[in-house]
């Protein structure tokens, strides 16, 4: 890799992670520069979620290191990583379903001491009309919007999203895509995505993962569209 590495926000090098005895990541190295929108693709079971969970501090690594804003974060608790401005939105789309949308947002605010909702709600104005609705009654798309909004509270510098568009209707995927572009103007994004056309449209750079290793990296739009995926997916 001979890319320009100034302004690196997140740098993961030679990461190895196992679940008990089962090794899942074999020396993964990735980096994300400030302002980028990096997408990670790869088949189910490739280890993408495991990589994100490890960065977020939820799984302890075996070997390697994770540096965020110049500091090692791999010994921190998940909540400490979040407090440093690196947020993770898991794949499961789980909100606090017994609480209202407002209460969900209040939790996000309280954790980060950020009570300025207007600046984060601009991306999804629809949520404003749903504030008193129980989060459990939201549609899948609305839930994802709520999760993204909650994660954006506290103005994180880097947000990791695990398959945010999975299972959503095309219209919603388009809405999210526009939101990603908007959010990316002030927030660095690292997204796991299976939707290739969307990836081609939003990504600045793409990593492809297979069987626990990074097997390709590209910035060329044409590559993103065709070559990489046909070869590795």
């Amino acid at each position: 890799m001979n890319a320009d590495r100034t302004n690196t926000l997140l740098n993961v090098s030679d990461l190895e992670v196992s679940y008990q005895k089962l090794k899942v990541l074999f020396g993964v190295s990735v980096y994300v520069k400030k302002g980028e929108n990096v997408v990670l693709v790869g088949r189910n079971g490739a280890g993408k979620t495991t990589l994100f969970r490890t960065i977020a501090g939820f799984i302890k690594k075996g070997k390697g290191n994770i540096v965020y804003k110049g500091k090692e974060i791999d010994r921190l608790e998940a909540y400490e990583v979040a407090q440093r401005g690196l947020k993770y939105i898991p794949q499961d789309k789980q909100v606090f379903s017994d609480l209202t949308v407002r209460e969900n947002l209040e939790l996000g605010s309280y954790a980060t001491k950020d009570h300025e909702w207007d600046t984060v709600l601009v991306h999804f104005p629809k949520l404003k009309t749903l504030l008193d609705r129980k989060a459990g009654n939201l549609s899948g798309g609305e839930r994802q919007m709520l999760l993204i909004t909650m994660a954006l509270l506290g103005r994180p510098e880097l947000v990791l999203m695990d398959e945010p568009t999975e299972g959503l209707a095309p219209q919603l995927v388009k809405e999210l895509k526009d939101a990603f572009k908007e959010i990316n103007r002030h927030t660095t994004l690292f997204i796991i995505e299976q939707n290739l056309p969307l990836t081609a449209e939003v990504a600045d750079r793409v990593y492809s993962m297979k069987e626990g290793k990074i097997v390709a990296e590209t910035t060329a739009r044409d590559d993103i569209k065709e070559m990489v995926f046909e070869k590795y997916l």
Partner: peptide, 9 residues
């Protein structure tokens, strides 16, 4: 887990 991802101790 979700609470921790949000930044709660």
């Amino acid at each position: 887990r979700k609470m921790r991802f949000l930044g709660f101790d």
